[in-house]
Write a protein that binds this DNA or RNA. Structure first.
Length: 616
RNA sequence: CGGGGCGUAGCGCAGUCUGGUAGCGCACCUGGUUCGGGACCAGGGGGUCGGAGGUUCGAAUCCUCUCGCCCCGACCA
């Protein structure tokens, strides 16, 4: 029997000022967590109970499709150099040295370790498929830990890895995870959406993120009534074709003096056109992970009313990082000043000659150095045009000289991009690509991610098995993660948002499946022996019926106990009070905010039924 | 890493500008009253004012350096 009077549940009336988002404040106030450093938290008994319940659900579902491991967090750095991820992850990976000076890293995921086991132990296709998982602490030296448990440096993650003999096998393993994840999040009481996602630094092809809509989230996702859902990084839409301007003059690009008209707004006003008829130019320097690689200029053209999506642009151009060009770079690579950049006559290949006449600066000197060493190659710009400009005609664009624009610019005729691709962010309300339903954009947080990794690690770490023909082949892999603390955080954020909308109060109630206790029995006054006794009896009966019950037997005033019970997020409360004289107690359902009076004898049965129903 | 803010009792804060015995509310301890929505009265405990150095007769307060935390951005399986 868990009696509050004997437990450590340090609730706070006020939240520390450090806490900003609802879940962070509530976790602190409810005595679930305490902060030790930036992005480092202790889990107090209540928090640990809740996390343990989440882990139990994950484990239950994962055991149906895989086998659990416990893997080392301390990894030799060589392992990460082998996979190439030491370089890719850079500062995000915690590094340390042992007493002998050997370099170690703290694992942020376990692809390397699991693949090293696989390559050492798996020999035959007969041993495949395998699904291996682990639930343990992972480390990331986040540049900016924030929002309580949402973005931290040390956290619990369920990670699993699948090994299959071929792509069809991987599809099966991937789909099993998809189903398991849906079961897990549903059992945790979350309302989630699965979205198409960018695979990012993990590499690989197919990928889905499991997201929970919340204002505290860090991602933007797009979804529609048709069921289409995608991360903004990946979301596409079906745009209706636009009617373009009629050509003027001889129909060829015509130089127009546009003094001081450097912004899209200025230009469209000057020409009396809509922003969709203007060509926007956004210029970047693209970098790859390799230290010796030469930065490539990446120039993007898109509709004036569209926003460039750097994730898509990076994927299309094959670079891993994009940064905006500085003014000197604009001059060198494109040949025009900011505000008057355009596709007509853009310098596509940078040579020593094209640098002549430019003022020298540090970056220019460096660039000249690169070209001197590699004069024949030059520096090729990658010119990417967004699909929104395809088939368009007679648009307005910068002329790459101060205070001049062109009109009658027609893509394909007046300039030829290296690549034509979708490189923009979709906007709210655009038709989805499946059925044309309007897209809704919303903030969300990621709670899980499944990837088809492919051969990335099998190849870099040299894992091989023999197939049915006795031929050596690489196993194909998938990897699948769930953020354990994020499930708790998402549940609190969702519930808190609902309470805030309905009653403008800062409170929450957790689903019974992941709450630290399923029910709290509140004895309104422990000095009245009948109340105390009735509370003890009911709590005991509940416990015998298999209910996870907390008995609030503290000698506190009723108001304090009610507030505390609400703070810790337990979904059901039984009040033992005055009505006991009539043989009745109150059952409060925190989720529906409804209270009903029940006979002392029937309350256990009633609650058991409610809990069973909530787990459906 | 860029920008902004904050470090004074467990929590929330005042005091810093203008140097002069470190305060308030909540929480905590003792006694009493109260007892269904964060009670009241009386008494009490608790602080190297983030740290180091400096200026000064005297520093929470002024100066220099430093550490930490939060927010925005960059970043982010």
């Amino acid at each position: 029997m868990h009696r509050w009077s004997k437990l450590f549940i340090p609730t706070l009336r006020e939240a520390p000022t450090d806490a900003e988002v609802a879940s962070h404040k509530l976790l602190l106030r409810a005595g679930y967590i305490r902060q030790l450093g930036a992005g480092i938290y202790s889990y107090l008994p209540l928090g640990q109970r809740s996390l343990n319940k989440i882990i139990a659900i994950i484990r239950d579902e994962m055991d149906k499709i895989g086998q659990e491991f416990l893997l080392p967090t301390l990894n030799p750095v060589e392992l990460w150099q082998e996979s190439g991820r030491e370089a890719v992850m850079g500062q995000n990976l915690f590094h340390l040295k042992d007493r002998k000076g050997a370099e170690l890293v703290l694992a942020m995921t376990h692809e390397e370790v699991i693949t090293s086991i696989a390559r050492n132990e798996l020999r035959s296709y007969k041993q495949l498929p395998q699904v291996w998982y682990q639930i343990q602490t992972k480390f990331r030296d986040e540049p900016r830990p924030k929002s309580g448990l949402m973005r931290v440096r040390q956290f619990t993650m369920k990670d699993s890895y699948s090994f299959d003999i071929d792509a069809a096998g991987l599809d099966k393993s991937y789909n099993k995870h998809d189903a398991a994840y849906r079961a897990i999040f549903t059992r945790c009481g979350l309302e989630f959406v699965a979205v198409e996602a960018d695979s990012g630094a993990m590499g690989g092809s197919g990928s889905q993120e499991f997201m929970v809509y919340t204002e505290a989230g860090e991602d933007l996702i797009a979804s529609s009534a048709s069921g289409y859902a995608a991360n903004l990084e990946k979301a596409t839409s079906k745009l209706t074709p636009l009617e373009d301007l009629a050509p003027t003059g001889d129909g060829m690009p015509e130089l127009v003096h546009t003094p001081g008209k450097a912004s899209i707004a200025d230009v469209t006003e000057f020409f009396g056109i809509h922003a969709s008829q203007d060509i926007k130019c956004v210029a970047f320097v693209g970098l790859t992970a390799k230290a010796e690689s030469v930065p490539r200029p990446v120039v993007a053209f898109l509709r004036g009313d569209h926003q460039v999506n750097e994730t898509k642009l990076a994927a299309v151009t094959g670079v891993t990082e994009l940064r905006p060009m500085v003014p000197l770079e604009l001059e060198v690579h494109i040949g025009g000043p900011a505000g008057f950049l355009g596709p007509v006559g853009i310098r596509e290949v940078m040579t020593q000659g094209s640098l002549n006449g430019l003022n020298s600066g540090k970056e220019l000197a460096k660039l000249k150095g690169v070209l001197r060493e590699n004069p024949s190659e030059g520096l090729k710009s990658i010119v990417v045009m967004d699909l929104g400009l395809q088939g368009r005609a007679n648009l307005v664009a910068g002329a790459n000289q101060q205070d001049y624009h062109y009109r009658n610019v027609t893509p394909g005729r007046d300039f030829t991009p290296t690549v034509i691709a979708d490189i923009r962010n979709i906007n709210e309300g655009e038709p989805d690509p499946i059925s044309g339903e309007p897209l809704r954009l919303g903030k969300a947080m990621e709670i899980g991610h499944i990837f088809k990794l492919g051969y990335k690690y099998s190849e870099s770490m040299n894992a091989r098995v023999l197939d049915a023909n006795g031929k050596e082949v690489m196993p194909i892999m998938g990897c699948y993660g769930i953020g354990v603390e994020r499930i708790l955080t998402a549940a609190i954020e969702s519930s808190a948002a609902r309470f805030a909308a309905e009653s403008s109060t800062e409170q929450y109630a957790l689903p019974a499946s992941i709450a630290p206790y399923e029910v709290i029995v509140t004895i309104t006054n422990v000095r009245e022996p009948e109340l105390l006794q009735a509370g003890e009896d009911i709590a005991e009966k509940l416990e015998k019926a298999g209910v996870d019950v907390l008995l609030d037997d503290r000698d506190e005033r009723a108001g304090v106990k009610f507030k505390d019970a609400e703070l810790i997020g337990v979904p059901y409360r039984i009040n033992i009070g005055k009505k006991l004289a009539d043989g009745q107690v109150e059952l409060v359902d925190r989720l529906t905010q409804k209270t009903e009076d029940l006979a002392v004898d029937s309350v256990t049965q009633h609650l058991v039924a409610l809990l069973a129903a909530s787990k459906q």
